[in-house]
Structures are given as structure tokens and as C-alpha cells.
């Protein structure tokens, strides 16, 4: 049964929070993947909602691109919203 496709599992553990990637599993179809995700990843009350996505539909950046992808952001501190003066009346930003 090893030829079954791989699925990535995302779980939301509280209302209002995002789904987080928790791991992967093998399953023949989406319904089984959901059931297996329930059985494997929510045994200890970790979740209230599950997403499964077949791994082949996830396109990832590759490690060798990381220099050109991410390093250029290092010296651009002006992109951080830390240069504004906030009026005192604004309490939560």
C-alpha cells in the first residue's frame, strides 16, 4: 500500500486561529486522508478543524534559491512599520 499518495495535514486548534501544518500521511483519497489525520493528529484534543492537501499540489521554493529569494530583504529595515510616530490616543497597533 506504499504507492498511496502523500498528504500534508493542517490543523486549527482553536476558533480564530490559523490552520497549522502538523505533518503528513499516506492515504488513498481525500476522505481517508481526513479520517487518518483525525486518527493520527487529533488524539489529544489538538484540533477543531482539519485540512488535508495532497503533497504534490504544494509547490515549494528550493533551498538553493534562498540567497536570491530572501537575503535582499535583510537591509531594508524601512519596510518595517517602525518609523511612524503614533499619536498617544492610538493604544493598540
Amino acid at each position: 500500500m506504499n504507492e498511496q499518495p502523500l498528504w500534508e495535514v493542517f490543523i486549527r486548534n482553536k476558533q480564530g486561529l490559523d490552520h497549522k501544518h502538523v505533518g503528513s500521511l499516506h492515504a488513498a483519497d481525500a476522505r481517508t486522508a481526513l479520517e487518518s489525520a483525525r486518527d493520527v493528529y487529533t488524539r489529544r484534543m489538538e484540533g477543531i478543524s482539519i485540512w488535508v492537501v495532497e503533497s504534490r499540489y504544494i509547490h515549494a521554493s528550493s533551498p538553493e534559491d534562498s540567497g536570491s529569494f530572501f537575503d535582499p530583504a535583510n537591509d531594508k529595515v524601512y519596510r518595517h512599520p517602525t518609523f511612524y510616530k503614533l499619536p498617544d490616543e492610538v493604544q493598540y497597533m
Binding site: 500500500m1 498511496q4 500521511l25 479520517e35 487518518s36 486518527d39 493520527v40
Partner: peptide
């Protein structure tokens, strides 16, 4: 179990 996932499922 036939695969790990199902082993856990049936044990649950």
C-alpha cells in the same frame, strides 16, 4: 496494521 495510519486508527 496494513500501514501506520490504519494501525493507529484501529487501535483508537
Amino acid at each position: 496494521g496494513p500501514i501506520l495510519e490504519l494501525d493507529i486508527a484501529i487501535t483508537n
